[in-house]
């Protein structure tokens, strides 16, 4: 499938022009195809949040280019505003940006700014509140009366209702409990499938990224240190560990088993894969390396 998003050597620094200038991102390049999920890994302060804000034009890079569907995002600076509907950005703790009297009006905010017709807005609101697993009588409630997990889903619906081709989520599950997390991921997967959208997820959970992503981008001190498939990136666990980053827990367990002298294949990033590798070990008979 075709490339929907591509960045080339993005550079942006804070306090530009002052002696305390600090590069937030430095020469970051990656590509993303329709229907793909990209996971972004990195410490707090590694430039992840700056990077995602360059993707919808909230931050203008000092140099380098963001290509959306082959076109330079900043080709016509007056129209960057329009691009925000095509690259939907969900910030961390998005429930804190809810402001309308009703859930309905809040979800309508983005679509209204797009200039869609009333009928189209109504259709999308109902569609996406359902996709997020909330029933239609939520629409007339005040968003401030909902539980934390429900608020988060309403906020996400507000972005999905703009039907972005690229959905970018900055730590979408921070502060949610396991049930809330699963609900959110389910909705993201559904949306991705239905619109064959590209998804970018910034997360600290290697376990979540291992199971959701096709590709991973590793950020460290503002630089893209690795970009590749989940398997390619997690295979470089030693480098990751030097940056203070982890691999999924099951991968760590297999690496420990290997260190204990077992001849186990350590290429496993989800529990199911790991179990397969452990079982395989027994079938082959000779478990020692």
């Amino acid at each position: 499938m075709s490339e929907i998003l591509k960045t080339e050597d993005l550079v942006f620094s804070y306090n530009n022009g002052s002696p305390v200038k600090r590069a937030a991102i430095n020469k970051v390049s990656f590509t993303l195809k329709k229907g793909e999920t990209l996971g972004i890994i990195g410490h707090t302060g590694s430039g992840k949040s700056t990077l995602v804000q360059t993707l919808n034009g909230l931050i203008k890079p000092e140099s380098g280019t963001v290509f959306l569907d082959g076109e330079d995002l900043w080709k016509n600076p007056k129209q960057v505003y329009q691009k925000r509907f095509r690259v939907g950005l969900v910030f961390q703790y998005p429930e804190y940006q809810l402001f309308e009297e009703t859930v309905y009006k809040d979800i309508a905010f983005g679509p209204k700014n797009m200039g869609l017709s009333e009928e189209e807005i109504d259709f999308r609101i109902k569609k996406y509140i359902s996709l997020l697993g909330l029933n239609l009588n939520y629409l007339e409630k005040s968003p401030f009366d909902l539980s934390g997990g429900e608020k988060r889903r309403v906020a996400l619906a507000g972005i999905l209702a703009m039907e972005p081709e690229v959905l970018v989520l900055d730590e979408p599950t921070a502060g949610l409990d396991p049930v809330g997390r699963e609900n959110l991921f389910k909705a993201i997967e559904l949306y991705k499938k239905e619109r064959s959208a590209a998804v970018i997820i910034v997360s600290h959970s290697m376990e979540d990224l291992a199971r959701l992503s096709d590709k991973l981008l590793v950020m460290n001190l503002g630089e893209a240190k690795m970009f590749g498939t989940v398997e390619e990136v997690f295979a470089r666990y030693e480098e990751l560990s030097k940056m203070g980053l982890d691999v999924p827990v099951v991968t760590k367990i297999l690496l420990e088993l290997k260190a204990l002298g077992l001849n186990v294949n350590t290429k496993a990033f989800t529990p199911a894969q790991a179990i397969k590798n452990i079982e395989l070990l027994l079938k082959e008979g000779d478990i020692n390396a």
Partner: peptide, 18 residues
């Protein structure tokens, strides 16, 4: 209880079932 097992425990439980 709406909780998620740590992956290590999940792995061990499945192995036990097997």
């Amino acid at each position: 209880a709406g909780l998620a097992l740590p992956q290590s425990v999940e792995l061990l439980s499945v192995l036990k079932q097997k």
